[in-house]
């Protein structure tokens, strides 16, 4: 039961993007199309689950003073694997994501989970926590990219969803649109939470 709670807390209650406001760079940068967002979600989930697994295994061997450096090296190793894999099998996606795949290293969600959870808990709980956080991150990115792609180009994952009458709202796929959409989504998220509490 407790493990289930660790698993689902990242979906909504402690959603890494909407509630903790972490990992903003990829959330804003790669959500101009759903395809890019899916690639990013996959890469982040792989790195997060992999490094949570390793960190929870080695958590008792690492001296406290060097723990952050150790975590970063573990994370950087997984990021390199993800980066090389994408470059080899999905060159187009890798080019579209550009520097944002290597930048997963400094994504605060990942280091945050290692520091706050994986370094203090067992393997199963840590992996479930990482999986739940990845799902929460995924929900946020899918929401962001769906809104932006539908409004900005009238398509969803490359499929046309709005008819020819729709004039694409170009700003939505530009940087400014990313800020607006995320700002409004956080607003909506807070309002929903408040309404349910009250």
């Amino acid at each position: 039961m407790n493990l289930w709670k660790e698993f689902i807390k990242g979906w909504w209650k402690e959603n890494p993007v909407f509630v903790m406001v972490l990992g903003m760079c990829p959330t804003l940068a790669v959500t101009n199309s759903v395809k890019n967002a899916i690639g990013m979600i996959g890469a982040v989930a792989f790195v997060l689950i992999g490094s949570s697994f390793i960190v929870s295994i080695i958590r008792k061997m690492v001296p406290n003073q060097v723990r952050i450096a150790t975590f970063i090296v573990v994370i950087a190793t997984f990021v390199t694997m993800a980066d090389r894999y994408l470059a080899a099998y999905y060159p187009d996606l890798s080019r579209a994501l550009g520097p944002y795949v290597p930048l997963i290293v400094v994504n605060c969600i990942i280091l945050g989970r290692q520091e706050a959870f994986a370094s203090k808990n067992g393997i199963l709980a840590s992996v479930l926590d990482a999986l739940g956080m990845s799902i929460g991150f995924g929900i946020a990115l899918m929401l962001m990219s769906s809104v932006r792609e539908i409004l900005g180009s009238g398509t969803w994952l490359g499929m046309k969803v709005l008819g020819n009458w729709y004039i694409p709202w170009q700003v939505m796929i530009l940087p400014a649109g990313a800020f607006f959409v995320l700002g409004f989504l956080i607003w909506g998220f807070n309002s929903v939470n408040k309404a349910f509490k009250g």
Partner: peptide, 11 residues
């Protein structure tokens, strides 16, 4: 929320 929307206008 408001910070991000302000940043959008700035962008």
């Amino acid at each position: 929320g408001i910070t991000l929307i302000t940043a959008g206008i700035l962008a």
